[in-house]
Design a binder for these strands. Sequence first.
DNA 1: CAGTGGTCTAGACCACGCT
DNA 2: GCGTGGTCTAGACCACTGT
Lengths: 251, 251
Amino acid sequence: MTTDTPKYLQVADQIRARIESGDLAPGDRLPSVSEISAEWGGSSSLATAAYRLLVDDGLVVSRHGAGHYVRSRETPELLVRQHRRRSEDSPFGQGVAEQGAVGSWRHDSTTEQASEAVAERLGIEPGAAVMHTSYVYLADEQPVQLAESWEPLALTGHSLVALPEVGPYAGVGVAARMRVLSIEVGDPVERVRARMANRAEAQALGMTPPGPVLAIERTYYDQATARPVETADVVMRGDRWVSVYGQVPTP
Amino acid sequence: MTTDTPKYLQVADQIRARIESGDLAPGDRLPSVSEISAEWGGSSSLATAAYRLLVDDGLVVSRHGAGHYVRSRETPELLVRQHRRRSEDSPFGQGVAEQGAVGSWRHDSTTEQASEAVAERLGIEPGAAVMHTSYVYLADEQPVQLAESWEPLALTGHSLVALPEVGPYAGVGVAARMRVLSIEVGDPVERVRARMANRAEAQALGMTPPGPVLAIERTYYDQATARPVETADVVMRGDRWVSVYGQVPTP
DNA sequence: CAGTGGTCTAGACCACGCT
DNA sequence: GCGTGGTCTAGACCACTGT
């Protein structure tokens, strides 16, 4: 009864088992590469390959010159994106403020002709005029979220709120701005995906190397007519954000 | 002016550059390990290490005995996970059926003592008895979704619905099963994250290499008492699933 | 069959940290 | 200084594919 699983996997599995059983606690130092070589025979590459697996899995951290250690369970501070009813704020400001961080953003608006995809999402004809705004959101000066937003210009026309981020209605969120036009918007529809950041996003979000992101396609509708009034692509660092939907019932 | 970047990284970077520039197209065969050894000198481990990086990055696939190939960009049909109100089905069945696929699942239930994390989410004492069920969901025989579910045993006790997937109430979803106990559950609260699959998940979901996943922490509450009745960790392939929240208003 | 990738050995050299 | 991990060599053997 020979085992056909490679030896370096056996080594890794044994160490993993000792970690998961609690035999080795977070922060504990693991056997050195040469200790493993002595115990299992073979060359140093064996232990190195085993540790590489565990490091890739995030179970172990290696400190050059000091040894391998069981990773301490640091759950990085998570920013929360609460999808809340009847909120007047922009969804971004809420979560950041609740974490005690300082939120801010940069933006850039231009009018363009709706692409086929945007037109589809806004229920308008391709080529119709839309206001396109790009956002970069910062928490404590660190970019953490990107968004591209589109609104039909036919809706906001030449009103005070045509430019989302200019004038008295800057930064208050779609719901409040639309109310100026006597439009009531309800909860948005959000389509959430997980994917890898592309290079531009990774650079903008300071992710080296590129990591997973939450990509949300969000659309607000006029509650009276069910017509879309704003659609946006929101991209957030997967390691920093949780997007929350629904709420605990109040009995 | 020597470069201090390791040689295997240089090899990997050069191949990556050729792929990203389009010089090497998806599906193209890459230089063999021995060809690289001949070109760069050194042993086969050099090329092997370089290819390991690229494979881990998802840029390259290796076929044992056949060579390394530029990964082809398959964007498969997206399955939709609709988070819908007043639904009696389990959330999984809906989306799959709408895509014309055949959904099925495997499961495995055991009773255990609640861990600290699970107890926190269920609002019970750590160590209290819970029913723990592991699910693997398949669409057209392909595993596409994993879930770990916990329910307080104090709730379902020795009733017909203590085992989620046994008896007349198998596969109908939490809402319908809880109604048997005269418990009305509302919409769940979902906390959505994006992260990389760990190796076990990647293997279970057939993701080679590990890719981004949607990780959803879902909790159902008793609407009358606001007490949690079920909590689950759901993991879905990020390249296959969209999770949808909210709905277009009906004027 | 020849060619390929995956695993593994035995050991060398270097960069790093003080466990 | 000495032990540590990270890189690298030269090559062996096996498992797999048909490029």
